[in-house]
Every structure is written in structure tokens, then in C-alpha cells.
Amino acid sequence: MLEVKNLRKEYGGLTAVKGISFNLNPGDIFGFIGSNGAGKTTTIRMISTLLEPTSGTAILNGADVRKDPMAVRRMIGYMPDFFGLYDDVKVWEYLDFFATIYKVPVKERATVIDSVLELTNLTVKKQAFVQSLSRGMQQRLCLARCLVHDPSLLLLDEPASGLDPRARAELKELIAELGRMGKIVIVSSHILPELADFCNTVGIIERGELLAFGPVDKIVQEIQPHRVLVANILEKADEASHVLSGLPSVLNSAYTDDGEVRIEFAGDFAAQAQILTKLVQDGFQVTAFREDSADLEDVFLRLTTGAVN
């Protein structure tokens, strides 16, 4: 379990992270969302013990990043937003280097390297030099590096940046698989639809403050507590809106000049069907009728202002 307690980082006169707190459990895939300079990387670097917090702390399975950084490091796999790969090193040598650093026993090293290569689909590149790999493969090699010591927590900073759609899809599947393996995964990204696909928890950060935290559905529900139906009417959208306002399951109804009626709705599916029936029976020409569900992008845009530190 990861407990982040009031984590704060100041650089001179600038506060990059303003005391953020959250908890994550094994199997959680946490999407960390924020603009550039919002404080995502600083937070991740503090959790990975690379940056000393000004105050507050993070505790991973009982080990405190400030008091026992070595114990924390043994349990984490950190993948920054750059590769930092060595030249003139073969793929297996690169992984062997990190396996040695993480004290993987000599007898198990070869097996561990083979298994992480298989997991990241790089087995055929075992003897290749790292600089000869494509960007997507290098990204997967970095992930393989993070896995050699079977960490409990994976910190992935912008893992999908610069990847083509196929590599991105593969990476997404790999991260989801890691979540299923019971690891805590923290993923920071700008690409919101992608995060919504495989993250079960998200946090939105702006100017070092955590504005929202929790399961994706719950956050969406918080900013849009009621369901919203949208009906496109060919003519007299104003009249249609007025008619719908009188229905018991409709909380609010508004229309636009281009014939769209937005209905805030608190009923079940039967009541939803009745709305459409009512419109048709009253002679309105309905060209479309759908539910407008908010997504992560809406939440992000609603909560943030675009300001940076």
C-alpha cells in the first residue's frame, strides 16, 4: 500500500508541490493528470526517493521515503520521461546491470531477464544493442528494467510520449497486465482518453495542488451528478424544451439556437424512453437522441484553469 502524506516541495521561492495526499492499494492503476509544470514529475521523483521532500512523506508498505529510502527503492520501479540508455550495451547486459543493482541472485538473473523480456515482447532483441532499438522498443526495455526486481510500485512518467499508436496500444495492455498482477502503477500522462481506458483511479494536479482524486466514475459523477440527455430537434427546439420541463423526471432543460435540447435527467431507462415518446407524440421532428456522458477530459477542463507554476 502506498500512502502519500502531505507531500510538499519548494525550490527557492517556488512551491512545486503543495502538500498533496492520497492512498493507493495493490492492483490500483493511478492516472496522474496535469499540465506541464503542474507538479506531476516532482511528485513522482519524491516518491521514487530521487528528490528530497521539503515536508511530508510517502510510505510504501511501511517504508518511509525520508527515513528508509533504500527500502523504498527496493520496492519501486521508476521509469522517467527520458530513456537514459547506455551506449554500446546489449539488451541483456543492460538488464543484467540493473538486476545486479537490485541484488537479484546470480543464479536467478538469467531467468529473470528472460521473463521480463518475454513480458515486454523483446525476447528476439536480447542480443541487440540498445541504441539499435526503435523508440517503442526502447520504451519497453525501460519498462523491462523496472520489472527485473518484481517491484510493488511502478512509477511511469509519461510512458506513452512519442510512441506510435501500435506501440501505445501495446504499452497500455502491458500496464493493465501489471495492474492485474497486483502491482500499484502510477502513470502520468497528458493523453486523457488513454488513461481513462486502463486507470481505475485518477488524480488531477494543478500548480502543485491535487484538485481531484478517486475512481474515474466517481470523479466524473462529482462534476456531473445527474445524467444529461441531448435531443436534436429539427424545428421549435424552444417549445420542445418547455414541454420537457414539465415532466417529473426532468430536472432542467435548456436549448440552443441550432436545435439542441440538453435535458438534466434523474429517471430510469423507462422514463428516458418516455421522454423520446413524448417528443415524437407532440409532433417534434427528432433527428437524434443520446446520453451525453462526461469523460476525463471534461473533468480535467472543468477543474483546471491551465495555470502553471
Binding site: 530521487l50 519501486i76 521508476y78 537514459g84 540508455l85 547506455y86
Partner: peptide, 12 residues
């Protein structure tokens, strides 16, 4: 090369 972070995120 920014590889120091990779090394020091391990128990080194």
C-alpha cells in the same frame, strides 16, 4: 545522458 536517475532510483 540522464542515466543517473535510473541508477539512483535503485538501492544504490
Amino acid at each position: 545522458r540522464q542515466s543517473l536517475d535510473l541508477v539512483f532510483s535503485g538501492p544504490v
